[in-house]
Design a binder for these strands. Structure first.
Lengths: 203, 203
DNA sequence: CGCGGAATTGAACTTTTTCAAATTGAGTGG
DNA sequence: CCACTCAATTTGAAAAAGTTCAATTCCGCG
């Protein structure tokens, strides 16, 4: 029952009501005219770029309150719903102040992503990623990671195997535990931060 | 005679006259109040983030016509002059249209950087980087790369040794030649594009 | 209960890093 | 203009990290 609701792609204009969508829903596609900008209300959305050689690069995950699709001309990436029943809002351009706010937020998010990718080792990248999600979702001891490990891999520039092994290693070192498949509990934020390179400080 | 002119950091407000600066000049520092945004007039500027563990991540190179320092609050990175005698212009915030244009450009540049970093192999990243510089500087058969290989390494997430070896390899495969230390001539844009993953098409 | 995608693990292989050393190059002072 | 010095680049060899390929195991879902 996946990828049903993709009629949403580039729907007719309208006011910014909240819409809810199933996992896998495509919100817009790479190279579609960028008619709207968006904001996540709840759940998680991802944006991805498809290379001509078939490889996929995720350019970002977006959590509640975060703007995505903040682009001019054509969308440079596709946007898809990651967590089932995610809600998001669509905005037309025109409110200069709001537009600028969204742009600033988008810019900050993507610059932050560059810093994530700069981490040298897989373990360090994973640690930084987990702390980043924690900081952005405002959660404390636990975070919910609705995306697949394949998504994390394509975001972090690793393979799924390496992502899996990194998780195992973090668990083995008792920095995290995994309550459910997609629920991570932090056991030692200090050491995790050190691993990440300590640019994210503990709360 | 390096790093002399750093008095420029956060200079007094004023109209956007062009200023010229020596290589190494610091235009602003990470965590300075982000009072202005900038635009390169000629030459090259780099922005970099310093991690607490001492590692450095370059977040971008900026060429003529490109905006940098487009941030709110505090600068998240430092900006330094790469090419000797580079010129840039300083802008105050307030012209909504211009602000938005700068934001859009900055966002596009940094998203593009993410795609660069997504390349799996060192050779592919180098190829993509060279083609990116070519596309952005409007140069054709040759590009000028005033930055050190250490800079490229910190930008691409590689070591200087790997950058050097990648260059050698590209030369050995006759995809490029090196006229001078920092001047590269393209010999086979097609194959170079294929190496890069072919998202940059030949001119 | 069984199917199929997702995650995990192992082992061989490849790439990149690391450490060390040699070479080149640019800028300085004589 | 040349010699000198220090930084940048290049190259080699060994070690480490990540990928690839293959095989299992785990889990959600019908």
């Amino acid at each position: 029952m996946n990828y049903r609701d993709s009629s949403l792609t580039c729907a007719a204009p309208g006011p910014s009501s909240v819409r809810r969508a199933a996992k896998g829903t495509i919100i817009y596609r790479q190279n579609d005219p960028a008619a709207f900008r968006f904001e996540v209300v709840s759940g998680v959305v991802r944006t991805s770029y498809l290379f001509m050689d078939g490889r996929r690069q995720l350019t970002g995950f977006f959590f509640a309150g975060e703007a995505f699709g903040v682009e001019q001309g054509l969308y440079r990436t596709s946007a898809e719903v990651v967590s089932d029943g995610a809600e998001f809002r669509r905005f037309s351009w025109g409110d200069k102040d709001e537009d600028e706010r969204a742009l600033n937020q988008a810019l900050e998010l993507v610059e932050n992503s560059i810093l994530l990718l700069g981490r040298r080792t897989a373990l360090s990248r994973m640690a930084a990623f987990l702390l980043d999600v924690r900081a952005r979702t405002g959660e404390g001891g636990c975070i919910h990671l609705p995306m697949s490990q394949a998504d994390m891999a394509d975001f972090l520039g690793l393979t799924v195997e390496t992502v899996s092994r990194s998780f195992s290693q973090l668990v083995r070192q008792r920095l995290i535990t995994r309550l459910e498949t997609h629920l991570v509990r932090f056991l030692d934020l200090g050491r995790l931060g050190a691993l990440a390179g300590t640019e994210f400080e503990e709360a």
